[in-house]
Structures are given as C-alpha cells and as structure tokens.
Design a protein around this nucleic acid. Structure first.
Length: 596
RNA sequence: GGCCCCGUAGCUCAGUGGAUAGAGCAACAGCCUUCUAAGCUGUGGGUCACACGUUCGAAUCGUGUCGGGGUCACCA
C-alpha cells in the first residue's frame, strides 16, 4: 500500500484510539511536506480542530506521540508547526520499500479487476490524411488504454472509420474529373494524401463554380446549392446509397488507398486497434430503437414524419433522431452502435475519445440512451480533449493551415537525427540502430509534447518548442534513462551482483530520501491518471522523477560511492528509477533508448 | 442570445480548500582530466483577469463583471 494511503489509514485508527471518534479520509488531508520543513508527510490538522475542540498544537503533539508509539518501525519523528503535523519516516521503512520493489517490472501495475472497458479513438474520415489533431487523439486514446490496463482493466481498443458520406464523394468526384487515372502506385504518393489532394481540388473547383454563378447573377445561397460539381456529388452519394456498382467500386478503390496510407501512419506512431468499426456497416443501426421509443412515447413524430426527442427537461433542446424520409442521422447510428458495443463485448464502460466540440452531441447521446432505458447509459464516458491550435491561429483544412501528421513525424525524426549528430555520442551505432534511436527520440518528443498538458484544455502547438529536446520534454526523460543504463553497465563490468543486493542500514542523504519518496508515489500517479483519465499526470510525474534523479546524479556518484553500502543503495535507487521511467513512459507510448 | 469550457511569470504549462504559488522555455551568471553537459547550480521575473461573498484559511468553492473559445444542423 502506498505510504500516503497507509498514513491516512493509521491516522484514522489512532484518532479513534485517542478520542473515541470515527473519522473518514475526507476529514483531513495527508500532504507531502514542503521542502522548507522537516519531515516527509504532513497531516493537516485544522479540519480536526473544530470537531475535537483541541488546539492544533495539542492535537498535533498527542497524535504525533501516539503515532510514533504505535508504529515505531514506520515513523522516526514528528514536529508540529501551526496546524501541520509533519511526520518523518524511518530510514528502514524507506530502504525496505526500495529493496522490495526496485527490480519489480510490475511495480505500478495492478492485478485484474475483471472489468472490461472499450476505448474508441482515432476515428478518422477517409477523405483526407491524418493531421496534428488526430495525433493528439491517437496518443491520448492509446495512452488511456495503457493506463487503464495498468490499473487492472481489460481494455479493447477500437476505432470507427467514417468511410461513407458526402465528404468521401467529394474526393471521388474530383478524382474522376481531374486525376486522369492517377493512383498511389503511379504517382508514388501515399494513398491518403492522394485522396486528400482531390478533396482540396473539389473545394477549389466548387468555389470557382459558385463564384461564376454569383457573377451570373445568382444569389449566394442558390449558387452554393446549384454548383454543378456539388450536384454531381450529391448524385453520387445517392448512387452509393442505392448500391450502384460503379460508385461502390470507385469508393472501395479509393478507400483502400486511404487505409493503406493510414496503416502506414498508425504503424509509425504506434497506434493499434483490437477492432475497427466502419460506418458503412453501422450507419443503419439504431432505427429499431426509434420504433421502440415511439411506442413508449419517449419519442414523438412531427407532421412530416420526422422523429424527435424532447430533452428540454435536461436543459437540452429537441433533437431529431430520424428524418422525414425515414433515413437516419448521426445520432441514430450512435445509439445503435453504443448498444452494439455493450452487447457484443459485455462492457463495464465505454470511453469515447472525441474532441470537445462534440460535448453537446455526446451529452445528447447519453441522455437519449438514458431515456430509452438502456442500462449502459451511465457507463458511456466522453473523454473530451481540446483543440490543438497553432501559434498563428486555428488549423483549417480548407485554408491549408493544417499540420500534416506524416510531415510532422518526419520533421521530429529529422530533428532527433540532427541533435544526435551534433552531439556525436553514438558514432559506433549501426545504420539500423541509428534509425531506431531517431524514431524513439523523435516520436518520444512528439508524444510527450502532446500528452504533457491536460487533455481537457485546448493547447497551442508551437513548432519551435516542439522540437526542443531540453527541459520538460520526452528526450530529457529518455536521456535520464540512458544515463542510468550507462551507470549500470559500468557497475556490472565491476562484477557487482546487482541482483542480490542486500541493503543494510545507511544514513540516507536528502536527495536519496527524496528520490525514494518520489518513487513510492508512482503507484498513486498511475491510479490518479486512470481516475482523472489524464496521461499528463504521468508525464509530469516522470519528468519530476528524471529531474530529481539528475540532481542526485550531479551531486553523488554511484559507481564511486563512499563505501560499498552506499554503492549498493545507489545502484538500487538507479535501477528502480530506470524501471519507473520505463514503465511510466510506456504508459505514454514512449520507448526508452539504452544509449543516446 | 441560451448552455459549456478557459483566463496563473515575457511564452508554454503544473498547482482544484492548507505553510512564503511552482516547472520548462526565453534572459543573465557559473559548472565537463571523475558514472553521458540532451545535464546540474544560481539570479531576475506573479495584483493567480477583476469585484464581492463563504471559510480559521481561497489560484482552488459561490455569485457577478470583463476577455478568449466551443456549441446550439434533417453535417459528421
């Protein structure tokens, strides 16, 4: 059990012993002691003062004395300053913790809790390549999946590919009109980029046609409706829905190009899925619930035959769930798919990693499911994340201000190569090893950069900052890991049996003590990251750990420690720091290099 | 306009009821014959948007104001 939780528990017990009153963990706080005070953990007494009618000083001293007496192995000393009871943990306890866990790969991982959760993320459209926003989504989804796994969940990663609709038809029409048979094989362009090019081409042509119509005297609205290319596209969508073989063949061909491109990108960035849903298979789902809802009077029909749900009692509006012509809208399919997910996979929780512009939509989905009496309604969780903006403003695909995912990955890896070459530390690496290293560092930098901020908040992507490999960055943490490997290599070559370290009593130096206490907090960081659905907690933790280790490293030598006991202690400390960095970064999808 | 989110150092962000508000970047000053300087140490830099309230205690909770963003489609 983590120290904080343990202290919480025994303080409750001690308070009952002393004052015959029951307290819960909400009645007081256990904090880390601020560095300017003596101690490791602090019990904040103010909240207890009132109920116990004792002064903070008396309460602190009574509690402190009692804690010390009942747990002499755990507490070494205490002091009371104002309303704060600062507790010092025994060196024995700290070294015991280190000894038990330093070599445990499973440190921070919980056993199965037999709960199943689905994480849906990435979910691209097939009319254009992935961009920076998708990267934040992918890294977030993948990381949350890993974090949940570490907390004992059985996780299924899914993606729903939006492979049908008017936007795909736009690319298809433009390709027919302008491509002259161009394929990824002929042009040597990645399939998703090729299809994306024709999506852009469509918009150019559309704008041109609308402009001409306006010039010919048509009102803007009419011109937008009547542009020939738009009409053709709508015709094509109709053809697709009716199953026109030519349209379907072209659709399948162009989508297959896109999938090949996506797969390449996913492979590079390390995204993967246990199952992929395609909207072309799911877009008809949900209609049966409309009938059911009508019978139960939860939904109502308007004169034109369209079906609606009234959510005004929940502060939301009326929402259409079925068009007058009987075709479904997006929310219809979402209801159907939500149910299918729970039924097919027997889920305890279903997480959707979707941008915060869809907060309203997801709220509506949940509310409709609730109204329809679906038992899983409350287990739908929208992990919403903020938009990625550029220093120059928002990304807009139509204005060509998007940062393409493939380009960005290339740039990050190239930056890793540049920095590595400048430093010249790995001249003996093979070509293969170098490539691996650049990938590890480039992707590490990018993932860390996008995951280090709270997902809920929108963030600004600063290109200069993103390629910085110093400070609060992935490579900084990776560097710390590599440094430790270097120490261990040296120590190993001295034939020290690091697998059989016997820690004996040492006098812990401040940095050694701080490191152990920080390492001990990893378990709580992993748990917090899961409850908050927030990988940035891990990123911050792992950075602080690396920073602290680097201070320790600069101050004290491991290989040339003052004596053998110190050496053993520090080797153990180094091994454990490396393990925690490795495990923590793994939760972010970031690899560690042995050398860099 | 209704609803939702955000406002902390020059910039990017931590900190959601506790002690004198912290990092990174940028700026400046130091540290490599000793385990990797992608590092370490130090200096300067804050009216936590503003006001009122709740509390022993507020960046954190409540109300209001100002500023920024999102959303309110028979689009996805």
């Amino acid at each position: 059990m983590p120290f904080t939780n343990f202290i919480q528990e025994i303080v409750i017990k001690n308070l009952t012993d002393l004052y015959s009153q029951q307290f819960s963990e909400k009645d007081f706080q256990i904090n880390e002691t601020k560095p300017e005070f003596e101690g490791d953990y602090t019990v904040v007494l103010f909240a207890l003062v009132k109920t116990l009618k004792k002064s903070p000083e008396i309460l602190g001293n009574e509690l402190g004395t009692h804690l010390l007496k009942s747990y002499p192995d755990f507490f070494f000393g205490y002091n009371v300053i104002k309303g704060f009871l600062n507790l010092e943990i025994t060196e024995n306890q700290l070294t015991l913790f280190l000894q038990k866990n330093y070599n445990k790969d499973s440190f921070g991982k919980k056993p199965s809790n037999h709960k199943k959760v689905m994480v849906e993320y990435s979910s691209p459209n097939t009319n254009k390549p992935l961009h920076l926003g998708h990267l934040r989504n992918n890294f977030l989804g993948w990381s949350i999946a890993e974090i949940l796994k570490a907390n004992g969940y059985d996780v299924i990663k899914t993606s729903i590919v939006n492979d049908r609709g008017i936007h795909i038809c736009k690319s298809m029409i433009a390709w027919q009109m302008f491509a002259e048979g161009a394929t990824p094989e002929l042009t040597h362009e990645k399939g998703d980029h090729l299809v994306g090019d024709y999506y852009v081409k469509f918009n150019d042509e559309y704008k041109k046609e609308v402009g001409q119509l306006i010039q010919a005297g048509k009102p803007k609205e009419e011109a937008e409706k009547e542009a020939p290319i738009m009409k053709k596209t709508q015709q094509m969508l109709l053809g697709w829905e009716q199953g026109n073989p030519e349209v379907r063949a072209l659709w399948e061909k162009m989508n297959s190009w896109v999938y090949k491109g996506f797969d390449e990108t996913y492979k590079r960035i390390g995204s993967d899925f246990d199952h992929t849903f395609y909207e072309s298979n799911t877009y008809l789902l949900g209609k049966d619930f409309v009938q059911e809802g009508l019978q139960k009077n939860i939904l109502f029909k308007k004169e034109d035959g369209s079906v609606w749900v009234d959510l005004s009692d929940k502060g939301l509006d009326e929402k259409l769930v079925l068009r007058g012509d009987g075709t479904s809208v997006y929310i219809t399919q979402d209801i159907g798919l939500a149910k299918q997910k729970f039924n097919e996979y027997n889920l305890d929780k279903s997480i959707y990693v979707i941008g915060d512009e869809q907060l309203y939509h997801m709220k509506v989905l949940k509310e409709i499911c609730r109204k329809l009496g679906m038992p899983f309604a409350d287990d739908i969780f929208h992990l919403s994340y903020g938009m990625v903006e550029l220093t120059t403003g928002k990304m807009k695909s139509r204005e060509g201000t998007v940062v393409d995912a493939d380009d960005l990955v290339d740039e990050m890896i190239a930056t890793a190569e540049k920095h590595t070459e400048e430093l010249g530390k790995v001249k003996d690496f093979t070509q293969e090893e170098l490539k691996d290293l650049y990938d590890t560092l480039g992707l590490g930098a990018m993932k860390f950069y996008l995951l280090r901020v709270d997902p809920k908040k929108r963030m600004i992507f600063n290109p200069e900052e993103s390629i910085d490999f110093h400070g609060f960055t992935g490579p900084f943490v990776q560097y710390t890991y590599a440094r430790i490997q270097s120490i261990l290599k040296k120590v190993e070559s001295e034939h020290l049996a690091i697998d059989h370290i016997q820690l004996t009593r040492n006098t812990l130096l401040p940095l050694e003590r701080q490191l152990i206490i920080l390492l001990e907090k990893y378990v709580n960081a992993v748990a917090d990251a899961a409850t908050e659905m927030n990988p940035s907690i891990i990123a911050n933790y792992v950075f602080n750990l690396a920073k602290l280790f680097n201070s320790f490293y600069a101050e004290h030598s491991v290989a040339n420690a003052e004596n053998d006991q110190k050496k053993e202690l520090r080797v153990t400390l180094s091994v454990m720091t490396a393990t925690v960095i490795k495990n923590g970064l793994q939760l972010l999808g970031i690899k560690v290099p042995d050398r860099m």
